[in-house]
């Protein structure tokens, strides 16, 4: 066993000191520490189920070694929730039926959030490009695209104080 290092991460706004062996992925670290909303799918960067934000940008946590992330801020889908209220992306996915089995949903929402962080008013092509690394085998993608559009609008209205 190689030497385990202590890594400081901010996870969902909370600072945590985490011991991780050098070959541990962020996916393994997060699930080991109870962040079960982060899903393990293909474990090779094809399916996007494990997507989380690192400093606001979506990455596949299965491809990211925890030891490379000292001092970085991690957001999981649970970290988007605003107290007892759902985040607009979460609410739109529920409202528009963009979820069936739900396994791909956390990753889809994080990929969408990463898009909206940069592009608050995305067109359909932007959304398709942003979600091209997320596989859903149940519902198809149309309702997912609709939910991202709707959430984007809600977030823009919040932003402009309407």
């Amino acid at each position: 066993m190689r030497e385990t290092e202590t890594i400081t991460l901010e996870i969902n706004g909370r600072r945590r000191e985490i011991a991780a062996p050098p070959n541990q992925t962020l996916l393994e670290t997060l699930r080991e520490h109870g962040y079960f909303e982060v899903k393990s799918g293909c474990e090779k960067g094809d399916c996007g189920a494990c997507a989380v934000l690192v400093d606001g940008e979506a990455v596949d946590s299965c491809l990211t070694l925890t030891g490379t992330l000292e001092g970085r801020a991690i957001t999981t889908v649970a970290g988007l929730k605003r107290g007892e209220e759902l985040h607009p992306l979460q609410a739109a996915f529920v409202k528009l039926g963009s979820i069936q089995c739900g396994y791909c949903t956390p990753g889809l929402i994080m990929a969408a959030q990463s898009l909206l962080n940069e592009t608050p008013d995305p067109g359909e092509e932007d959304i398709r490009l942003a979600l091209s690394g997320n596989l859903c085998r149940c519902t198809g993608y149309t309702k997912v695209f609709d939910a991202v559009q709707e959430a984007a609008q809600v977030l823009r209205e919040e932003e402009s104080g309407l």
């Binding site: 960067g45 094809d46 940008e57 990455v59 491809l63 990463s114 490009l129 091209s132 690394g133």
Partner: peptide, 12 residues
């Protein structure tokens, strides 16, 4: 770059 893998891979 537009047809390279998916967003999360492109970000990394």
């Amino acid at each position: 770059a537009r047809v390279f893998a998916g967003q999360m891979v492109r970000n990394t």
